[in-house]
């Protein structure tokens, strides 16, 4: 039978005496303090502030660094290409936004067409380049 972890802790505390428990409820000390100071003073009223826990907006790497994909920049484009097939990885792997993914894809086609980038492989000299993402751990599951 599975045991509820909190129940387990409580049981243990009863048997072994005082021990540290996760703070689920306000501790009695803070509750008392609130009762003493609350009510009478208006300066203690809650003030409206921006949500301090709001997370920063997630931005893709090209938008963050403000990089414009260009067909002459083969080294950059090669980072989004599979070394096994020469095809560009999907959006769930590259972690680019929709617009940037489309732009990079079109620049890769241009570059291949102009004879700057190979079709069926990645240039061997770029194989050691730093990895921007891990193809084995996509952001989202593969659609097929």
């Amino acid at each position: 039978m599975m045991q509820n972890p909190i129940y387990f802790l409580l049981k243990q505390s009863r048997s072994t005496g005082p021990m540290l428990l996760p703070r689920l409820v306000h501790s009695s000390v803070t509750l008392q303090r609130n009762a003493e100071s609350g009510g009478a003073e208006t300066s203690d009223m809650p003030i409206e502030i921006e949500n301090p826990f709001k997370k920063e907006k997630v931005v893709c790497i090209l938008c963050k660094m403000k990089i414009e994909p260009d067909y002459k920049n083969v080294r950059l484009l090669s980072q989004f290409v599979s070394p096994f097939t020469g095809l560009m990885y999907g959006r769930h792997i590259t972690g680019l936004c929709k617009t940037q993914q489309e732009r990079v894809a079109s620049e890769i086609t241009k570059s291949q067409n102009a004879g700057m980038m190979p079709y069926y492989n990645k240039e061997p000299e770029f194989l050691e380049d730093p990895k921007l993402f891990n193809p084995d751990r996509p952001v989202r599951n593969h659609e097929y």
């Binding site: 907006k57 931005v59 963050k64 936004c97 241009k110 004879g115 952001v139």
Partner: peptide, 23 residues
């Protein structure tokens, strides 16, 4: 000349990154 292509130069694209909504 072995190969030649003419491409239009990309204009400065103004767009917002929509990655957050996509995730």
């Amino acid at each position: 000349i072995i190969r030649n292509r003419i491409f239009k130069v990309n204009e400065n694209a103004n767009f917002e990154c929509t990655l957050e909504e996509e995730l």
